[in-house]
């Protein structure tokens, strides 16, 4: 009887969950399978492991022309810096949009939302030539440098996460601000002393999402950074499968696995906060 009840109420849930898990895991399983194969092809003879080999990891980690660790640390540094600074800028904007009164507020927020909808890939040439001019007098933040790329990424910092942030700001009771204002606090003080501490869990989540977003960026990074020692992991690994001559899925899979692992672990360990953060924008208290 208990089984029957379970079968009627819960089994379909488990069935759906199993199916979806299979869908979610299939490509990931292929990455794992391919990275531990002996050959570099993505071809599947069998879906079961037919052998265990570290060839692909060796060719990834010991090849002097493949500075895997450098790529990885470049990506992490770029993404970390961009995410922290952009969250900071975004939070300030969201706070001001939510709590301050000023003329043209509605127009400016609409403008901000619209600008983001411009197909940015097409402005690539213009960005390229601007950064190139910068390079002429400030070589450390111009074209071909990590610093320059970071600046370009920060260009969108104000708008990108504003949806998530604004929802959260709105959800903080305005009474708190008003109380502080009555006590004579300036907007800056309210921002630093009340808003930021309250928002820190959400900011951390937005920061993480922004980190992943930056980590994923490909087109700009591939155009901006030519020196292999400056490249990001996405650009570096793409080289394995976009070669003019042959595709090396093995090392690519091995690299993807190593590169994704820390992010996946981070993501899973923070999933509770991420869910809260993602929904804060929509679900107001």
């Amino acid at each position: 009887m208990i089984f029957l009840k379970w079968f009627l109420t819960k089994s379909w849930r488990h069935a759906i969950a199993w199916a979806v898990c299979f869908f979610a895991l299939f490509p990931l399983y292929m990455i794992v399978l391919t990275s531990f194969k002996k050959t570099t092809s993505l071809q599947v003879g069998s879906f079961l492991p037919t052998g265990f080999s570290l060839t692909n990891f060796n060719s990834l980690l010991t090849n002097p022309t493949v500075p895997f660790y450098t790529w990885m640390s470049n990506s992490v540094i770029i993404a970390a810096f961009v995410s922290v600074v952009s969250v900071f800028i975004g939070a300030a904007s969201a706070f001001a949009f939510s709590r301050l009164r000023f003329r043209g507020k509605k127009a400016s927020i609409q403008l901000l939302l619209l600008i983001q909808m411009f197909p940015a890939v097409l402005a690539l040439s213009a960005v390229y030539s601007i950064m190139d001019r910068v390079h002429a007098f400030a070589p450390s933040i111009g074209l071909g440098t990590i610093g320059g790329l970071v600046l370009v990424y920060l260009g969108g910092a104000m708008g990108v996460n504003i949806w998530l942030l604004k929802g959260f700001v709105d959800s903080i009771p305005i009474e708190l601000d008003e109380a502080a204002r009555v006590d004579g606090a300036s907007p800056m003080q309210i921002y630093w002393r009340i808003f930021l501490p309250l928002a820190s869990p959400v900011l951390a989540v937005v920061c993480l999402l922004s980190f992943i977003g930056t980590f994923n960026e490909y087109i700009l990074a591939s155009l901006f950074l030519n020196d292999p020692s400056q490249q990001t992991i996405a650009v570096g690994l793409h080289g394995f499968i976009s070669g003019q001559f042959a595709t090396n899925w093995g090392p690519f899979a091995a690299g993807s696995l190593l590169a994704s692992l820390p992010i996946v672990v981070l993501f899973l360990s923070l999933q509770k906060y991420i869910v809260n953060g993602l929904t804060a924008g929509a679900v107001k208290g």
Binding site: S222, N226, P228, G239
Partner: peptide
């Protein structure tokens, strides 16, 4: 100066 690939 080396670029990642021919296309780049």
């Amino acid at each position: 100066v080396g670029y990642t690939g021919f296309d780049t």
